[in-house]
Design a protein around this nucleic acid. Structure first.
Length: 450
DNA sequence: TCACCAGTGGAGGGTTCG
DNA sequence: ATCACGAACCCTCCACTG
């Protein structure tokens, strides 16, 4: 039988990317430091608490961050290093429970219900994890302890340090919401804090007089469902009462795989767009093969100058996993659009998995079925990249006219570097998907409790 | 022929999160 | 006066089937 209640931890690293940078540049400690895309079209991925005092926070456009805090040190970011450190953090979690659900490089849920006999209460485990992380990795984190994921996440926010214009308040480090305390903890908070309430949903709730989580919890389900729809409505109402039965899920298969890129300058030339389409398709195809499944549905995303965004999709009879096939499906969709305003962003993604794609072994010629050339050459490309690096080979049509280098900027994380003249060779597009900046990390930010 | 119903899957857009 | 990237989920509309 299931336990009477679970003990869930939400662990959130403090200013993660910045803190990792400070380990190798200790002379920057105590200064405002920002990690993110430096260009005009970039955003902040992480800000030190010193920088947050000036209103700099995750997802803030870099241009604004620079204005708010001109003396801040801006660093470009090193995703590979953060991933490496993240796995070391993960290893520490593993000392206490195998039930770990990573939310991003710097956040995870842990179900420690079964670890209490061995290590002590939830808060004890939380503190031990903080001690381990501090001692072994020289990093700090904040931990929420609660009977479910939602409350644990809310609690970790309360546990965090806070930056105001006047200074930095250290956080409690660990905050627990005990069974029975759910509503007293939750109800005074702004409904904006609910997981799933963004600006639009807040607007709808505001119109029916809901400001706090308590306001929402007091409403009949029919009212909430009428305002927000059946799915979101009943879900948010449950959360407002502190109810969240979602389990900590150790491994979840992705439901879509895609790449998109914002360009330092809007693209007008169809040849440029076609070339970019090939590049993105090639990146997606490579990841589909690595994942071991073809995508039946392919979606093209175009953001025009002026920010209007459209998507166009097709569903094929069978899954595909080669650049050739993806380009063949996407090109007509792209060409059917009026591209005259100029294109700011292009994206390609695959979903609806299930098509064929066994990893073909190029050099042992025992392919089970007769293999189309496209697939055999795709497998060859994967192997060459495996051996010689992601930039070693790319589609001929992704080579830009004015230089002989294969242009694979790919794995662009927080926006274009901008610098119009500078060439950038960079990492292959086939690397892992990009992480996140998160506005909520600051604890208060632009929209605190009203 | 029309209207309606329920279910399904696709297309397109929107919202939210990290 | 500036807004990245990757992914999940939701909603609405529509075509089609029976």
């Amino acid at each position: 039988m299931a336990a009477a209640h679970r003990t869930i931890l939400h662990v959130d690293m403090d200013a993660f990317y910045v803190s990792v940078e400070l380990r190798r540049q200790p002379e920057l400690r105590g200064q405002p430091v920002v990690v993110g895309g430096p260009g005009n079209r970039g955003v902040v991925a992480a800000a030190s608490y010193e920088a947050r005092r000036y209103g700099v926070h995750s997802a803030l456009p870099s241009a604004i961050a620079r204005r708010r805090c001109p003396h801040a040190v801006f660093l470009p970011g090193d995703h590979e290093l953060y991933a490496e450190v993240s796995s070391q953090v993960h290893e520490i979690f593993g000392r206490y429970t195998p039930l770990i659900e990573p939310l991003s490089l710097d956040e995870a849920f842990l179900d420690v219900s079964g670890a209490i006999r061995l290590f002590g209460e939830g808060v004890v485990i939380a503190q031990r994890i903080r001690d381990d992380v501090s001692r072994d990795l020289d990093l700090t984190c904040s931990v929420g302890v609660a009977p479910n994921k939602f409350l644990a996440k809310m609690a970790s926010v309360e546990a965090k340090p806070r930056a105001n214009p006047d200074g930095i308040e250290p956080g409690a480090g660990v905050v627990e919401v005990r069974p029975g305390e759910e509503t007293s903890f939750l109800h005074p908070l702004s409904v904006r804090r609910l997981w799933g309430v963004g600006p639009k949903t807040y607007e709808k709730l505001d119109r029916i007089g809901v400001r706090t989580i308590g306001d929402l919890a007091a409403l009949p389900e029919s009212t909430v469902v009428a305002a927000l729809g059946p799915s979101s409505g009943s879900h948010l109402l449950a959360l407002s009462k502190g109810i969240d039965a979602r389990p900590v899920e150790v491994e979840r298969d992705p439901k879509s795989i895609g790449h998109e890129e914002t360009y330092p300058h809007d693209l007008h030339d169809l040849a440029d767009l076609d070339r970019e389409l090939v590049r993105l398709s090639d990146a997606v195809a490579g990841r589909l093969r690595k994942f071991g499944s073809g995508a039946r549905t392919l979606t093209l995303k175009v953001r025009f100058a002026g920010f209007r965004t459209v998507t166009r999709s097709v569903t094929l009879p069978a899954g595909v996993d080669t650049a050739t096939e993806i380009v063949a499906a996407m090109k007509p969709l792209l060409h059917a659009l009026d591209l005259s305003p100029g294109v700011r962003l292009l994206g390609v993604s695959g979903s609806n998995f299930g098509g064929r794609s066994e990893q073909l072994d190029l050099f042992s010629s025992q392919a089970a079925e007769p293999t189309p050339d496209v697939q055999r050459s795709a497998a060859a490309i994967d192997q060459i990249r495996e051996r010689f690096g992601a930039t070693s080979i790319g589609p001929a049509s992704s080579i830009s006219g004015d230089r002989l280098r294969i242009v694979r900027r790919g794995a662009q994380q927080w926006g274009p570097d901008q610098q119009p003249g500078a060439t950038r060779s960079g990492e292959g597009v086939t690397s892992e998907p990009t992480p996140r900046p998160k506005p909520g990390d600051t604890g208060d930010g632009p929209n605190g409790p009203k």
